[in-house]
């Protein structure tokens, strides 16, 4: 009997969540979120005072500053840069892990096309990403609103403070989580692609992490020769969610980044598809 897509997907999801490693991401997210919430609860006003002190020489700040919206933004700002590493930890060995343990041979003996197997693994990776984003979303948004209350949002940027009305924030956060999902899907696709190239489960994980760190460093360097290169790095476009909190929003700028991220997902998945389905790997021939 041919296993259905759902059966294969269920098996992949069980595989992912049966590994302790898969829960490191959730634990790390919970720890960071609670630490930021605790810090902001205890010392949030002082932290904001430090930021606004230069502007408060002439005018005074009025109103409830440390709101759930603001705390959620700070959490996202801190975590979304680190989350790709947590995703790579799980999606980096979706193929290579099975190649190393030998279970890929068993999987390929089933009457299922390789394309389908790869697609199932890709979707399983997406589901893991969605689970991480939902977990982050619930801990950082509703919980922060519950602890700190709703209210206008002060967006901290290095060159300006943006004040958004509370009613104007919900859709921005939904957009931010969507862009975070796209960004992490790029990482998931990249690690899946690297995972196809080797039968060592650690190599694609470490390589993906190294690429993320390297790209992030290049992104922080204000050197003219890197300016063109930066346009092609997914790490440059991963942080575009922050521009959803601008006023006014530069729609074309954000759309371009969404386009680049989507294209990179397609590119990485396309290479994986080509390599996995057309090439004869030694772990299949043996």
């Amino acid at each position: 009997m041919y296993p259905s897509f759902i059966q294969l997907l269920r098996a992949e999801i069980i595989k992912i969540f049966s590994r302790k490693r898969s829960f490191i991401g959730f634990a790390a997210i919970a720890a960071v979120v609670f630490l930021i919430q605790l810090a902001m609860y205890v010392d949030g006003e002082n932290y904001i005072g430090l930021i606004t002190q230069s502007i408060e020489q002439s005018i005074k700040l009025s109103g409830h500053i440390v709101t759930g919206n603001m705390v959620c933004f700070i959490i996202l700002q801190t975590l979304i840069i680190q989350m790709p590493l947590l995703v790579a930890l799980v999606t980096g060995d979706l193929i290579s892990g099975e190649a190393q343990s030998g279970t890929i041979r068993l999987l390929l003996t089933k009457p299922v096309s390789r394309e389908k197997i790869l697609f199932v693994k890709f979707v399983a990776g997406l589901i893991y990403v969605i689970a991480l984003i939902l977990f982050l979303g619930i801990l950082s948004y509703p919980l922060s609103l519950l602890i700190f209350g709703n209210g206008d949002m002060m967006v901290l940027k290095s060159d300006e403070l943006v004040i958004l009305q509370s009613a104007d924030t919900v859709w921005r956060f939904i957009g931010a989580f969507f862009i975070a999902f796209l960004s992490l899907t790029v990482v998931s696709s990249l690690s899946l692609m690297l995972s196809c190239f080797t039968n060592n489960s650690i190599t694609p994980i470490i390589t993906t992490m190294s690429i993320i760190i390297l790209f992030t460093i290049i992104g922080t360097l204000d050197v003219p020769i890197f300016e063109t290169l930066k346009q092609f790095l997914f790490t440059t476009h991963m942080i575009i969610w922050r521009n959803l909190f601008d006023n006014p929003i530069n729609i074309s700028f954000i759309s371009k980044s969404i386009g680049v991220l989507t294209a990179q997902i397609a590119l990485f998945y396309g290479i994986s598809h080509y390599y996995f389905s057309k090439k004869r790997h030694h772990w299949i021939i043996v």
Binding site: L50, L156, K157, S158, T235, I239, I240, S257
Partner: peptide
Amino acid sequence: SKFKIPKGIAMDINSA
């Protein structure tokens, strides 16, 4: 006075 938050404090690193 000129408004500037250190990028580390604003966590506004790798600005696009």
